[in-house]
């Protein structure tokens, strides 16, 4: 039972992070039907920006929570700029090309960004400054670290904020309209090109927050960490029903849980395999995911 509770806590932490990354995939796919391979690299860049900013601010002697907060905001802005640059440079000129060319250029961009990170930051792990958030407490035998509480807290705030943005604001309405029908929404005066940029920026900001939290959770970042996590997050998006925001959140949580429980109860060597198997299984038996692909109201 203790093991079960412990795995549950770890699964929720990890699942929240997957959900944040999965949202970026699902939003971009919903709006321009592209698997944005570069998204995993944006996540890794976010992790690096976190390490860069936090270690600089810690060296200046700011208190940990100020460091974390400021780094989170600045890095999210940075990643949004990065994703918008990628979108403007590579995806926008290809809007009318075949899907294979867009997919290939997304893949090229992913390799480009990953190696760019390697060239500027080195091939070795970069460690996050220790002692950011220490300690923890115990519930029914399961240890919950304050780090996990902080991570889950930030995740929940971001997810609620995104839901508010998409379902309650004018911008969100414009995003949903563009996802449903680009021509029609352009006719009623929505600048679809700007909305697409914005979608990339929002997805990137969420992935960046996830990158920082993964870095803090595991203690270090690596230039190629975006690859496997990107595929898992994409599996989460597919599991939830691609293009569906609520689905991506649920899918992320499920994939995180499944990974942690499978690693705990079945085999930890094969833990990366389970996400792929779920992806294949879902696509084969239930290609629209658990929440459905085309639920118009929740599609972005």
């Amino acid at each position: 039972m203790e093991v079960f509770l412990q795995q549950l806590v770890n699964g929720i932490t990890l699942g929240g992070v997957y959900a944040l990354v999965a949202l970026g995939y699902t939003m971009v796919y919903g709006i321009i039907q592209l698997i944005n391979f570069a998204h995993g690299e944006i996540f890794a860049a976010g992790g690096y920006m976190g390490v860069i900013l936090i270690s600089w601010m810690v060296a200046q002697g700011y208190p940990p929570f100020v460091c974390l907060g400021v780094a989170l905001v600045l890095a999210m802005g940075y990643c949004a700029l990065l994703a918008m640059a990628v979108e403007k440079l590579v995806y926008k000129p290809l809007r009318s090309s075949s899907r294979l060319s867009v997919l290939l250029s997304a893949l090229g961009m992913s390799i480009f960004l990953q190696n760019g990170l390697m060239l500027t930051q080195g091939v070795y792990d970069r460690a996050y400054p220790g002692e950011m958030v220490q300690g923890g407490f115990e519930i029914g035998g399961a240890v919950v670290s304050y780090m996990q509480v902080v991570i889950v807290g930030i995740t929940v705030v971001l997810l609620v904020g995104l839901n508010f943005l998409v379902f309650k604001t004018r911008i969100g309405k414009a995003m949903r309209a563009t996802a449903q029908d680009k021509t029609m929404s352009a006719l009623v005066g929505i600048n679809s090109s700007r909305i697409i940029s914005l979608t990339f920026a929002i997805g990137a900001a969420l992935a960046c927050a996830a990158g920082i939290m993964v870095g803090m959770y595991y203690g270090s970042v690596r230039y190629d960490m975006g690859f496997v996590l990107g595929v898992k997050a994409f599996s989460a998006a597919v599991l939830g029903g691609i293009g569906n925001i609520t689905g991506a959140m649920l899918g992320g949580l499920l994939i995180g849980m499944i990974e942690v429980f499978a690693a705990g109860y079945i085999s930890s060597e094969y833990k990366d395999v389970f996400a792929f198997i779920i992806l294949i299984g879902v696509l084969y038996f239930m290609p629209t995911g658990i929440m459905g692909e085309n639920v118009d109201d929740t599609r972005v």
């Binding site: 592209l34 698997i35 997919l103 060597e269 395999v273 792929f276 992806l279 294949i280 696509l283």
Partner: peptide
Amino acid sequence: YPTLRMRGDYLAIVTLGFGEIVRIVLNN
């Protein structure tokens, strides 16, 4: 066989997953 019924871009990510599965199995 299980992947080819999928749309083109899903196929890409699933084959990527299969490539990784083969490597992980070889490794373990």
